[in-house]
Design a protein around this nucleic acid. Sequence first.
DNA 1: AAAGATTGAGAGGTCAATCTTA
DNA 2: TAAGATTGACCTCTCAATCTTT
Lengths: 155, 155
Amino acid sequence: VGAELEEPYLDAWRAVLNANALLTARVDEELAAARLPPLAWYDVLWPLYRAEERTLRMGTLAGSVVTISRTGLSRLVDRVEAAGLLRRRQARDDRRGTEVVLTDEGVAKLRSMWPVYARVLREHLAGTLSEEEAFLVRDALERVAGSVRAAGAGA
Amino acid sequence: VGAELEEPYLDAWRAVLNANALLTARVDEELAAARLPPLAWYDVLWPLYRAEERTLRMGTLAGSVVTISRTGLSRLVDRVEAAGLLRRRQARDDRRGTEVVLTDEGVAKLRSMWPVYARVLREHLAGTLSEEEAFLVRDALERVAGSVRAAGAGA
DNA sequence: AAAGATTGAGAGGTCAATCTTA
DNA sequence: TAAGATTGACCTCTCAATCTTT
């Protein structure tokens, strides 16, 4: 156990797992302390905010929220919709599809969440990494993500 | 939305989230395809394998498995124990504590899981990153994790 | 028949309360 | 009373089956 893979790669992978778990948990703690919704809601609201007319098809949104399954997204959108932060409507060009539209309340909530989120990232990322390191980490891990995507599901 | 944090840090963070989610999902797919337990089980078995006498207190084990809560670990250990890969026993020095001991079956299962896990990491990490990059990612993200830990829970 | 999306059933996770020993 | 760990109630996620439209 442990052979056949050079150590630096395993160490790097463990570091990714730990940094991800710890920082994500910290963000959720801070959001909860501020009586704001969890990070998962931000992951849904943000792609909508960036999108043309603040509208996205469920399938497209699912592609942006990589941490959850298509099924899980349906349930998550149920809750965010119940909170009034977005609404669903039938797509008019292809009526099988569902469009999700960010509401004004959704925009407001997103704006109230961002400062909390940003403060945690600033403290632990900008506070410990140089910009050069941040670029390097981004490049390296984007290549990794690309490799996994290229291999495709169940390939 | 988007201000007050330099871009490279946000980009790096998104890369961490994506690489983590995609690679973790891929490992679980490959393990499932090989009729092996999920990655979470490996996270429990591995620290035990490394430990003195292949034994760890629940609290210590919880510290190693950073992706799950203390409560969640109790339930996870229930399942892994039911599968015969480890067993619990009362600690003799402090009988409030529970010790978890890896069984021979647990060792065997761990050894059968590793090649699958390693193959995915080799393909997507060793296949896309140089060793220097791996070192850099490790150093950078270990510092980030350290920063979060130092800030403490609810600090 | 296939694509887009949701739902029912069950697995797995968390928080607060509990049990046991120190 | 506090520490170590588990349990009860509840919430969220996933897989397979389903519904609707193409």
